[in-house]
Design a protein around this nucleic acid. Structure first.
Lengths: 227, 227
DNA sequence: CGTACCATTGACGACGGTCAAAAAACGTGG
DNA sequence: CCACGTTTTTTGACCGTCGTCAATGGTACG
């Protein structure tokens, strides 16, 4: 299965407008927001590459981000999607283990790692929070593994519930990513994702208002796929 | 697919022989070994359960350990295997996210979490090492995800190479776990694992000396499965 | 309004799961 | 050390889910 992600590399966004935005999802990052700057990234722009030195930590202000790895034969696995408020790119080691790209046009808060580390050195509370962020990431990845052993219907259903939970807006789920992104996240093909969505629609579990706008019609039925 | 792990719960091993053993794989745990005690666990004995308070951190002295989750319908997913020297059960949060069992008779060093936390509070180096352990675990789980999107042959091949790397003894791989454990780790069935192993033997990539003793005959061929 | 790109649908086949049975391996007690 | 019963592993036959290849339909943007 091939998945040539369009490598139309956009500008690397080298501007430092110091926009200090208000973003959802409070965290310790709120208190160190002043240490960083908001940077704009275009659609599909690379934020960092696998194995690059992890000199910065990132937080999504607006838009969405995907992290991924590409296997030798071109198969792509998306590790996670990051939405406004989410922190990503924080590594306990020296290098990024995944690559990161903007899914849509996005504003990203960028913070120097050394600044955080220096603060953690003195404030054990900050050190604990850094650890905690990695711990949450670990949990997320562990849940992801559980997704990957399920059937296609279960994966898609769980995915929709996950997205609904992360962007609470009633039963409406706005998907910032393409079918290909979803497929590469769930370990499926676009065809299977598409077919499964229409299947869920036919069974009245969801309604596909448009390709990227899903309405959850029967959460109970979807939740059954999540066990 | 069902996977009823034999729930013949052995004794919970409630003895505190203070055996301070020499174990491979040096780490910061060496310096805090005196804070804990070596405990014996019988085959299939539970070390801790999912959602239990994570009051202890563990290190394998001898034997092997598996961590796992069981889905609603009985499917079991093994999160990791831990071999002598490996640390497990360290959580950034308050509870264990997986259950842990001894695969074979095992000796496990058990350390109070509060002791580590108190030390981390004062020594930022210790705090950094705790974070680092979680970070390594994160990497391991991320690699695990990559395994789960591969074909059966690739999964089994990669698994053998992983085990060989972790217990270096030439080309001989001694497997402490059953086919069922391997299957639940790789997201396959025992039948597929078994069939794939004989297939690898027929293609002269490995030799199955006995069920739990594999000899790597063609690492190059196996490595091709790992890309 | 036209042209890419993206999503959906269809036909077909392969990989791995399921069910079943045989063969090894293991442990226990005589 | 061997005999027997249990567990684990292997092998076989068959089937279903999902991947592949291909074509059609839809949507966004210049």
């Amino acid at each position: 299965m091939f998945t040539q992600t369009a490598t139309r590399t956009f500008s690397r966004a080298a501007n430092n407008s110091p926009a200090r935005a208000q973003i959802p999802g409070g965290s310790f990052f709120d208190s160190v927001t002043l240490m960083g700057a908001a940077m704009p990234y275009g659609r599909d722009a690379e934020i960092y590459g696998e194995n690059e030195p992890a000199d910065y930590v990132y937080r999504v202000i607006s838009g969405a981000v995907r992290t991924y790895k590409v296997l030798g034969d071109g198969r792509r696995q998306i590790g996670a999607f990051y939405l406004p408020g989410d922190i990503f790119g924080l590594e306990a080691g020296e290098e990024h283990s995944f690559s990161a790209e903007a899914i849509s046009d996005a504003k990203i808060l960028v913070i120097k790692r050394t600044a955080l580390m220096a603060l953690a050195e003195r404030e054990s509370a900050v050190a604990h929070q850094l650890w905690s962020v990695t711990g949450q990431e670990l949990r997320r990845v562990q849940d992801h593994i559980l997704l990957l052993i399920k059937t296609a219907k279960e994966r898609v259903g769980s995915f929709l519930l996950e997205m609904a939970k992360r962007r609470p807006s009633g039963n409406d789920v706005e998907l910032p990513m393409s079918r290909q992104d979803i497929a590469d996240y769930l370990g499926l093909t676009i065809e299977t994702v598409s077919r499964t969505l229409t299947e869920l629609e036919n069974s009245a579990s969801i309604k596909i208002a448009s390709a990227r706008h899903i309405v959850l019609r029967d959460r109970r039925a979807l939740a059954l796929l999540n066990r």
